[in-house]
């Protein structure tokens, strides 16, 4: 049971100090999670801390490789809706 940070991470440091297990560390090109230390905050917090503060949709994945903050969940820009907005702007 562990999360993974992928390349869309912007290295903003927000998650690093919050991790109750010090599983998150600075690395290049982006921050990493030590899978041996990460327990997804079970027993420590109701919500996984890194997932709750990460500003980038899709940057943290669960063990199945699914984004924990899926597209549209943080920015409010739902992909389909966004495509429509662009089309409308171009038509205007």
């Amino acid at each position: 049971m562990a999360f993974e940070i992928i390349e869309s991470c912007v290295n903003c440091w927000a998650c690093e100090p919050l991790c109750p297990n010090q599983a998150i560390y600075e690395a290049r090109p982006h921050f990493m999670i030590d899978a041996d230390k990460c327990n997804e905050c079970a027993g420590d917090f109701e919500e996984s801390q890194c997932v709750s503060i990460c500003p980038i949709e899709g940057a943290i994945l669960n063990e199945s490789g699914e984004p924990l903050n899926p597209p549209g969940s943080l920015t409010g820009i739902v992909p389909e809706k966004f495509a429509k907005l662009v089309a409308r702007q171009q038509a205007a």
Partner: peptide, 16 residues
């Protein structure tokens, strides 16, 4: 100070 605790609609954290 890289980390932020809120999101504003006029800010894109990816930008650099």
């Amino acid at each position: 100070a890289p980390a932020c605790n809120i999101q504003c609609h006029y800010c894109n954290r990816k930008y650099d």
